[in-house]
Design a protein around this nucleic acid. Structure first.
Length: 805
DNA sequence: AGCACGCCGACT
DNA sequence: GTCGGCGTGCTC
C-alpha cells in the first residue's frame, strides 16, 4: 500500500474529495485509515485525514505525506463511516464531519511565516522590509500583514530574498511528567542504602523510600516534595543504574480534587422493573432496539439508566450517556461518578480544550467504559458499544446548529444499529416525533407514571397577569406568588423563581416617541447589560454605550422593557427586603466553577430564593424547595417557531418538577398573559397525553413534523435584492425538480431578516418522501458555487431544522 | 480557502 | 508600452 487517500482541511466544494499522497518508505505499514497527516497542498501545508490506502494512484505527480500526527488512528473505522454518512445526510463537507467528531484540540491551526532565504539576503532587502528582520530571520505574517511595508515585502519575496513558509501548528501538546522507578529489586536497594556514607544521606533517603514502596513509578516532583530533597541525589542514583527515569503522560483531571461517595444500586419499584426488563433483555441479546422511556419527573429514570449501564459494563461493553449541555450539572455528573468511579469520562463545554482532549484519549485507549456528555459525546470513540442513553430526549440542544447540522439522536441510532445495541431515549415530555414513533411501534414505549417516593406532582396555580394589571398590581409578582413567597420565608423553606427569558430580553424604549434602540447591523433590538452600562447585540456582538437621552427625539424618558434577571432581583429586593437571593444567569455563572458554587450555596440554605433562567430548569434537586414560580410563562409562545407550544409545555413541566421532590409537598405558580393557551393549561395539569393529542392535531393541520419532514434553505447576502432573487431561483429550481407532493414555502424573510449587515431569506420544503430532494439540494449548491465564492453569497441547508431561524 | 494565471482598461 | 483590475481554474 504505497498511497493514501486524504481529505484535506480546506472547506470548499472543489476540495471536498480525496486527494492521493505517496506514503514515504519509513511510514509504510504504519499509516492507517483514520490517522491525521500533514500534507503539501498547493503552496501550503494542511492537515488531512487518511480515509483509505491503495496500491496505485491515477495521478502521476503525487506528493509525499509530510508528517503523521497520530500513533493510533484518531478516527476508528466506524467513525470514518459515520463521517461519510453525515456528509451525505446533512450535506456538509467531509472535513467538517470528521472535525466534528474529534475534540477541538486535534484540529490544526495554521500560520504563515516570512523568512530570509539566506543571511546575505538581509543586506539586499528593501529598507522598509528590512526593519522586520533586524532581530530574527523570520516573522509571522500575522504581525506584518497590516503594516505599511506589505508591498516591499512582496517585492522581496519575488526577488527571492524572502520566502513564505506555511506551517501547521498543533494546538495542544500532551502533558508529560518525569517519573522515577526502581531499576533493581528492593533487596538490592536496601543493601545499597546500608552501604551509603554520611556524605550520601539524601541518596539513602531516596533508596529507603523505594525499598519501602516497591517498584511503582513516582512522579519526580512528588518525590522531591515528599522527601524534601533536590533532584541531584536522584540523578546520581539514576547514573548508578539503581533508579530509572521515564516520561509519562498526565491527564488533566477536572474532577481530581473531588471524592465521590460510592453508591450501590437502589431497589427498583415494580414499575421501574417493568421498564428495565426489555432494556436488559436487549443488552443480553445484543439486539438493536430504540426504547422511549416516558417517565414523569421524579419517576427514577436515572436509576434505570444506572442499572442498565451496569449490565452493559458487566458484559464487557461500553456505554454513552448524553445529557443536555445545560443540565450537565455537577449533581448529574456525580450520580454517575459515584456509581462507576474512574470508569467514567465526562465531556462538556465547561472543560478546557486540553481537558476535553484528555478525556477523549481516555476513551480512545479504553481506560474508561462510560461517557457522560453533551451532544458531541455521541461520537465517543468506543469500539464495543453496548448502549446509548439520551436523557431529556426532547431537548433542542441535541441538534447542532452549525455544519454538520446533525441530530445526536440520529447518530446514536446509526451507531447502535452497527453495534447491535439498544438506544434508550428518556423524557418526561417526549418530543412529538419520538412519541409518534413509539405510537407506531418504531420505538418501544416504556412508561413510568409514578414518582419513586409516591409524592404527588405539585399543585399548579396559573395566574392571569392581565387580571393583576387590571386590579392595579403593576409589579412582576402576582399577589398569589408574593403571598406564597412570604409564607416560605416564614417557614424557612426555599423557593425557585424561573424567568423565561428566551426571545424576550431587556430592550430599551423611549416612552415619548416609542423608538426602540435596535442594532445597526441586525434587525433585532439591543439588549441592556448592567455590567458596563452597555447595549449589546446578541447576534453580531455589536456594543454601544447606553444613551442618556433618546437618540430620536432627545427625550430623557427612556426606560427598560422586558425583565432581565438583574431587574427581577432588584424588584424582589424591594418587595421582600429580608429574603436572601441567589441569581443565576450568564453574568453570574460566567466563570468556571461559579455555577457549582452558587448551587452549593443554595443547597446549604445560604439563600431563600434561587432566581434564574433556563439553566435552573433542569436536574436540580433540593429537598427544601417547596415553591416554584414561573414569572412569565408565555414569552416563547409567540416566537415564529412551530415548536413554540411544545417547548413551552416542556419547559413548564420541567420547572414544575423542581418542587416538592422530597418529603415536603410542593407548589407551583405560573404567571402568564395567555393562561388559556393549551400548552400552559395542560402543563398545569401535568397532562402530557392531552397535550400530545392537541398538538398533533395542530401539526397535522399545518403540515409540520412529525407529519411532514422539513428542509430549510437559508440564503444570505449584503444586498437584499440579491438575497431575494437567489432564493426565488432556488424555489423555482426545487419546484421544477421535486414532485408535486411537496410544499415549497417562500421565498420569505427569515425571522431575523438581517444579521451582521446581511439580509436573510429562506425557503422551506415540507415533504413526506422525496427521492430527488438530496440531489436537487446538491445541485443548488453547485449552481451557486461561483456566487458563493466571489459574491459574499451564502446558502445554508438544514435538513430537519429545529426552528425556523 | 488561497493562490497563480491570464485577459482587458487606464496610465507613467 | 506597462501596471494592475479581478474572473477562472487548480490544488494529489
Amino acid at each position: 500500500m504505497k498511497f493514501a487517500s486524504v481529505i484535506v482541511d480546506v472547506k470548499a466544494m472543489q476540495t471536498d474529495r480525496a486527494f492521493d499522497y505517496l506514503i514515504p518508505e519509513k511510514w509504510m505499514g504504519f499509516i492507517k485509515p483514520g490517522m491525521r497527516v500533514i500534507v503539501p497542498f498547493g503552496p501550503r501545508a494542511v492537515q488531512g485525514f487518511v480515509i483509505a490506502l491503495k496500491d496505485s494512484s491515477d495521478f502521476d505527480k503525487v506528493k509525499p505525506i509530510t508528517e503523521v500526527m497520530d500513533i493510533t488512528p484518531a478516527l476508528t473505522a466506524e467513525l470514518l463511516d459515520i463521517g461519510h454518512w453525515l456528509t451525505e445526510s446533512t450535506l456538509c463537507f467531509k472535513i467538517s464531519a470528521f472535525q466534528a467528531m474529534l475534540p477541538a484540540a486535534m484540529k490544526a491551526k495554521y500560520e504563515k511565516e516570512i523568512r530570509l532565504t539566506s543571511s546575505e539576503a538581509k543586506d539586499r532587502l528593501h529598507p522598509k522590509s528590512a526593519r522586520w528582520f533586524e532581530n530574527a530571520p523570520g516573522i509571522f505574517w500575522k504581525e506584518i500583514e497590516k503594516s505599511d511595508s506589505v508591498k516591499e515585502l512582496q517585492g522581496d519575496i519575488e526577488r527571492g530574498l524572502l520566502e513564505v513558509i506555511y506551517r501547521v501548528k498543533q494546538k495542544n501538546k500532551q502533558k508529560t511528567q518525569k517519573v522515577i522507578r526502581a531499576a533493581v529489586t528492593s533487596d538490592v536497594l536496601k543493601e545499597e542504602a546500608s552501604g551509603c556514607t554520611q556524605q550520601a544521606a539524601k541518596q539513602k533517603k531516596v533508596l529507603d523510600y523505594f525499598a519501602e514502596h516497591g517498584g511503582a513509578a513516582v512522579p519526580l516532583q512528588e518525590l522531591l516534595l515528599k522527601l524534601n530533597i533536590t533532584d541531584s541525589p536522584v540523578k546520581t542514583l539514576i547514573k548508578k543504574n539503581l533508579l530509572s527515569e521515564s516520561y509519562e503522560e498526565i491527564y488533566r483531571d477536572p474532577y481530581a480534587d473531588r471524592t465521590f461517595q460510592k453508591t450501590e444500586s437502589l431497589p427498583l419499584t415494580p414499575e421501574q422493573q417493568t421498564a428495565i426488563a426489555p432494556i436488559l433483555d436487549g443488552i443480553e441479546r445484543k439486539a438493536h432496539d430504540v426504547f422511549l422511556m416516558y417517565g414523569v419527573t421524579g419517576s427514577g429514570k436515572t436509576e434505570v439508566y444506572l442499572q442498565s449501564i451496569e449490565a452493559v459494563l458487566n458484559q464487557g461493553r461500553e456505554a454513552i450517556v448524553l445529557v443536555p449541555e445545560i443540565s450537565l450539572t455537577p449533581q448529574m455528573v456525580n450520580r454517575f461518578k459515584a456509581r462507576f468511579g474512574s470508569l467514567v469520562a465526562v465531556l462538556h463545554s465547561g472543560l478546557s480544550i486540553g481537558e476535553k482532549y484528555d478525556e477523549w484519549r481516555k476513551i480512545r485507549r479504553g481506560e474508561v467504559k462510560l461517557v457522560v456528555g453533551a451532544r458531541s459525546a455521541v461520537f465517543a470513540p468506543f469500539t464495543n458499544l453496548g448502549m446509548i442513553i439520551i436523557d431529556e430526549e426532547h431537548e433542542g440542544s441535541y441538534k447542532q446548529e452549525e455544519n454538520p447540522r446533525y441530530h445526536a439522536r440520529d447518530v446514536a441510532i446509526y451507531r447502535a444499529k452497527r453495534h447491535k445495541c439498544p438506544v434508550v431515549l428518556g423524557s418526561a415530555t417526549p418530543s412529538l416525533e419520538s412519541f409518534a414513533r413509539a405510537g407506531k411501534g418504531v420505538y418501544q414505549l416504556l412508561t413510568l407514571k409514578e414518582r419513586v417516593n409516591s409524592r404527588p406532582l405539585p399543585e399548579v396555580e396559573i395566574v392571569d397577569m392581565r387580571d393583576e394589571l387590571r386590579s392595579g398590581n403593576r409589579t412582576m409578582f402576582s399577589k398569589v406568588l408574593l403571598e406564597k413567597l412570604e409564607d416560605r420565608l416564614e417557614k424557612g423553606q426555599q423557593s425557585v423563581l424561573f424567568l423565561n427569558k428566551r426571545g424576550y430580553s431587556s430592550f430599551i424604549m423611549c416612552r415619548d416617541c416609542g423608538c426602540v434602540k435596535g442594532c445597526p447591523h441586525c434587525d433585532i433590538s439591543l439588549t441592556y447589560h448592567k455590567r458596563g452600562h452597555l447595549l449589546k447585540c446578541h447576534y453580531c456582538g455589536h456594543e454601544e454605550p447606553m444613551p442618556n437621552v433618546c437618540p430620536e427625539c432627545g427625550s430623557e424618558h427612556i426606560r427598560f422593557f422586558g425583565t432581565g434577571t438583574q431587574r427581577v432581583e432588584e424588584e424582589l429586593a424591594k418587595v421582600l427586603p429580608e429574603a436572601r437571593i441567589i441569581r443565576m444567569d450568564v453574568d453570574t455563572t460566567g466563570k468556571k466553577g461559579a455555577h457549582e458554587k452558587l448551587l452549593t450555596a443554595f443547597g446549604n440554605k445560604e439563600a431563600d430564593i434561587l432566581l434564574g433562567t433556563q439553566m435552573i430548569a433542569k436536574g436540580l434537586d433540593f429537598p427544601d424547595v417547596t415553591l416554584v414560580g414561573v414569572l412569565t410563562a408565555d414569552t416563547m409562545l409567540h416566537l415564529p417557531d412551530f415548536r413554540a407550544s411544545e417547548k413551552t409545555f416542556q419547559l413548564l413541566t420541567q420547572v414544575s418538577g423542581r418542587a416538592g421532590r422530597h418529603l415536603l409537598p410542593g407548589e407551583v405558580v405560573i404567571q402568564s398573559y395567555s393562561p388559556e393557551h393549551y400548552s400552559i393549561q395542560l402543563a398545569g395539569k401535568h397532562d402530557y397525553d392531552s397535550f400530545y393529542m392537541q398538538e398533533m392535531t395542530a401539526r397535522k393541520q399545518h403540515a409540520y413534523p412529525p407529519f411532514y419532514f422539513l428542509a430549510l434553505v437559508t440564503v444570505s447576502h449584503p444586498d437584499l435584492l440579491k438575497a431575494v432573487s437567489v432564493t426565488e431561483k432556488i424555489s423555482q429550481h426545487l419546484n421544477h425538480k421535486l414532485s408535486n407532493h411537496v410544499q415549497i414555502l417562500g421565498p420569505s424573510a427569515s425571522p431575523i431578516p438581517r444579521v451582521n449587515d446581511r439580509y436573510r431569506y429562506q425557503c422551506m420544503i415540507k415533504y413526506k418522501r422525496e427521492e430527488n430532494l438530496h440531489s436537487a439540494l446538491k445541485m443548488i449548491i453547485e449552481r451557486f458555487q461561483q456566487d458563493m465564492n466571489k459574491n459574499q453569497l451564502s446558502i445554508s441547508i438544514d435538513m430537519n431544522p429545529n426552528a425556523m431561524m
